[in-house]
């Protein structure tokens, strides 16, 4: 464990909690892409099956359980509890255009053709594009609530911190995992224009609005 990875995990946990509280407290999931949340639940489910097979540490197990629990709770709130506030007209990204090619890619490019490893690879690839329906929805509505932009910032920051963690681990431990690094780069790059808008607008107290 190093500082970058810990900061990344904290940022990721913060993002998940911000979203959960936003929906629960405002009793509304307006502006939130349910599809992205389904994809995140799928990412955690396929990545954390090793909860059943290997114990790494108390921290590792606890965080995985929290991530899985919160992501399913978020999906449940969007599609059941506060379904009336779900904006399905603007959440139109075709998830199958992401899941199917990535499933194929994870069968072709992986470290080991074993079930758990293929699922882990699928999860890493899927996570890199899972935010697309949400970014697509923000661009369609042309704006995002401030709390949603904080959620997106924390979520984007987490993988950027992981990139720093992998640089650190490369020099400190000689460890590197090219699949995770390439997917993490793609994932972070997808947030770049959002990061620019967040820093130039939201941090100046303005509302996040995309140029129409």
């Amino acid at each position: 464990m190093n500082l970058f990875r810990l900061a990344g995990d904290v940022s990721h946990l913060l993002a998940i909690i911000i979203l959960l509280l936003k929906i629960w407290r405002t009793r509304s999931c307006a502006g939130i892409s349910g599809k992205s949340q389904i994809l995140f639940a799928l990412v955690f489910t396929t990545r954390y099956l090793d909860l059943l097979t290997t114990f790494i540490s108390f921290y590792n197990t606890t965080m995985k359980v929290i991530y899985i629990g919160c992501s399913y709770a978020t999906v449940w709130m969007i599609y059941a509890k506060f379904k009336a506030t779900y904006d399905s007209n603007h959440d139109t990204f075709r998830m199958e255009f992401l899941v199917i090619p990535i499933a194929a890619l994870s069968l072709l490019v992986n470290h080991d053709f074993a079930p758990l490893e293929i699922l882990w690879t699928f999860s890493i690839y899927l996570e890199s594009v899972a935010i697309l329906p949400q970014l697509f929805m923000v661009s369609k509505t042309g704006e995002a609530e401030t709390i949603t932009s904080h959620y997106l910032f924390a979520l984007g920051l987490y993988r950027a911190l992981y990139l720093m963690n992998w640089i650190w681990r490369f020099f400190a431990e000689g460890f590197f995992d090219l699949i995770a690094i390439v997917a993490g780069l793609v994932q972070t790059i997808l947030y770049c224009d959002f990061f620019y808008l967040y820093i130039t607008k939201v941090l100046k107290g303005k509302k996040l609005s995309l140029p129409a």
């Binding site: 990875r5 090793d50 290997t54 995985k64 991530y67 080991d112 074993a114 490893e117 963690n165 000689g174």
Partner: peptide
């Protein structure tokens, strides 16, 4: 190093 041994990151 065997990468698949265990993915110790979240």
């Amino acid at each position: 190093h065997d990468l698949t041994a265990k993915h110790d990151e979240l």
